[in-house]
Amino acid sequence: MSTVKIPPVLRPSTGGEREVPADGGNVGEVLRSLAEQHPDTQRQLFGEDGTLNRYVNVYLNDEDVRVLDGLETPVSERDTLVILPAMAGG
């Protein structure tokens, strides 16, 4: 089971959880597993066509999945996914 780190703006959708364990062999499967556990995250992460929203950055460990294989990037049990939305507070 890999770990998904939840940013503050998504925590209301995960019942306040900051880290959610989720199953899946690749990034897309892990995120869909997250969305199954916490349905409110579905709309925030994915567009209607099932692709990742452009304003959501996802990192596998420290690397942006956009420079890897996107949602197809393989994920192993010990990996951490970081969901990163832009913030503008100052």
């Binding site: 703006v9 452009r54 304003y55 950055n57 939305p85 832009a86 913030m87 507070g89 100052g90």
Partner: peptide, 30 residues
């Protein structure tokens, strides 16, 4: 830098030496 709640983000955007803000965040969130 940006802050919210208990979380902060920090980066240096040095044009043409490294990525810019749009490379990191192509689109703002809703």
């Amino acid at each position: 830098a940006s802050i919210l709640g208990f979380d902060g983000q920090l980066a240096v955007f040095k044009p043409y030496d490294g990525p810019c803000y749009r490379c990191l965040y192509p689109t703002p969130p809703p």
